[in-house]
Design a protein around this nucleic acid. Structure first.
Lengths: 209, 209, 209, 209
DNA sequence: TATGAATGAGTCTTCATTCAT
DNA sequence: GATGAATGAAGACTCATTCAT
């Protein structure tokens, strides 16, 4: 996996400090962005929530849009790592796939506010950042494509359908954030919802055969 | 099905004119919002695109947010009507369901820019509008719930799963807008994608049994 | 008494209609202006309250400011007439003066909303209107000057003080509108307040001797 | 006497700077408001007159209305302090009262533009500010009530009349601003007017006995 | 005479970003 | 490296006034 192509520049030389301050910014931004969205959130609010002054914050980013990017950077890495950890050590293909699906559901549920924000804020990214974001997304989808390929090993599958299945597996869980209002009304717990969604997609992917 | 509870007030008395001008506004707004999102779009741009002056535009709405609402009003009614028309005259349950699914896919594909915008802009709606929007959404989901019930008539289904299936059926096609960048790269035509998605969900819904 | 020098022009020829429509405008304006002040009141609101459309209203005035003027015209004439009626037929000087003072208090109390408005809105009048307004005010003050002169007939009074007394007699009752909030709290009825104010000024004017 | 309950919030942390900039704003606002009234004065004009840019001005206030309030805050405190200073060290009750009345006349004359503005602008204050303003006004009236009580010590006075007298003593001098146009025409100097008004009210208050 | 839709100049207000200390 | 005051461009919204019907 190649290193992230895009780096948000900073005036600060001390790399540890940059890492630490960026974590503060990310955590503050997640809170504020989740509550008010990107455009309604002011840099001042984010700085305050991060425990920084506005001047200091601008020592670690260059534009307000950079904040979206570093938040995305953080959350996409988290998701990827969580799924990797979940399947680590499992060799049986079906179990690997199921473990990944379960973890994906769990992660999206856990980070739902940020996920929702990311989906809504993509239009504020500049072309370069967007490109980077989509590349990461692609890698994530390909991770599931590989798991599917393992699951269907030996069977004759339609390649196009397999690819689409990977898209669907990574896209469908996001419903938990976009339809939260509806699901909450109908189901007692999100665990139940996750279980059902898992079953649904496991049935669904059989269409690739 | 009750008429929309919320009406956007206007200073203009001639109802036909209101209808006509609002159509202009909706079409102008869709273009601008799709290109730049809600917050980056200026009222002046929307007015110009609609062929109105700013002053005139504000004779037909009260706040910028009202524009989102009338756009939503328009598109949700369009989708609902298109699906109704598509199943009109079909009595065989499975065919009814499939026709509805196909039309839903087609409609979402056709209105993808607006759909994308609607999903992203919901946070700009005031409580009352949001409530109205979700109520409409619920009706739409229930339409598919009924179709599923017809499809599974005579079989023993899990009610909870059936409801979730309805949620999924209406949610999944939206992937075509959120993953357009990915699908375009992988598939030659959207017709192909739609066909695959249809098959996927038809497999998926069997999990309710 | 000379006729009002300033006339607000109108496009309408039928003088009776002008008179009738202006009365509607005055009554509507008094309601709206009292509630919201001149600048916050919109011409549309005034037109509606007057039972006219905006276009029609503008057939009877030329500028929004004209409305202040015709309201002032109306109310100043009303006050003057009410005081004249009150002293009509009374010949004993002291009783004449007291009757005038009593009526002035009553009129200001009765028209307090308009009086308050007039005091606050004077800055919106153009030079010519303001000049006219002050001329009327002067006449009103001179009316009380004459009454004082009658009251002090035969006594040696300081002319300057007598003039100032007339100013004070016409100014002091306005306190009922500007200090309404305070008076209401302290007194059971405005009749009581008026009685006290009358006694106060009757004592006060003795300073002219 | 309690400190002002209401504080206008500011984004600036340096309190000395806030004090200094607010003084600039107050002086600028007094000039502009006196000339054009509240609603006709633009924030930009006030900022310029204060030697600030619009952005900077808005770092020290939140709404245009806040300007009225800080102007009122400033002038009411000034009046109160000036009267307190004037009676400080005088123990003889009649002299104390007269000194207070004289100073009140002087202060109102000196600050006439602001006083006039304050009277006209009260309708632009929000409920909270208005409440605060009236509370201050009440304190000021009570100051004169106490002075009157001292003056009438030992004599049997009507309490209601004494209270009204205090109202009148603080209200009447404002005539100098509302009737400036009339007084100027009739009198050579405002000193003369003040002397007469003082005599008038000293006669008037005897009605309390 | 009455109507009311269209106009657009004019204002308040916000906020990302800079930079001197 | 940190601070936070200053900036000014930009955008939403209002409303008096006009004029074609």
């Amino acid at each position: 996996m190649k290193e992230s192509a895009k780096k948000v520049e900073t005036k600060i030389k001390n790399v540890d400090l940059v890492e630490q301050r960026r974590q503060q910014i990310i955590q503050g931004a997640i809170k504020i962005f989740s509550a008010k969205g990107f455009h309604s959130a002011t840099v001042r609010e984010i700085a305050e929530e991060a425990g920084l002054t506005m001047g200091t914050l601008y020592n670690y980013i260059n534009r307000k849009e950079d904040i979206i990017y570093i938040v995305y950077d953080y959350i996409s890495e988290a998701l990827r790592q969580e799924v990797r950890d979940a399947i680590d050590g499992i060799s049986e293909p079906k179990e690997r796939l199921k473990a990944a699906l379960r973890q994906n559901l769990k992660s999206i549920h856990q980070h739902q506010d940020v996920i929702m924000f990311i989906y809504k804020a993509s239009s504020f990214l500049d072309r370069e950042s967007l490109h980077e974001v989509l590349a990461r997304e692609t890698e994530y989808i390909e991770l599931f494509e590989d798991l599917l390929r393992g699951y269907f090993r030996g069977k004759k599958v339609d390649e196009n359908r397999l690819r689409l299945a990977a898209d669907l597996l990574t896209y469908i869980p996001v419903m938990m954030t976009f339809r939260r209002w509806s699901l909450r009304r109908r189901f007692d717990s999100m665990d139940e919802v996750m279980k059902h969604i898992l079953d649904f997609v496991l049935h669904g992917i059989e269409f690739t055969l």
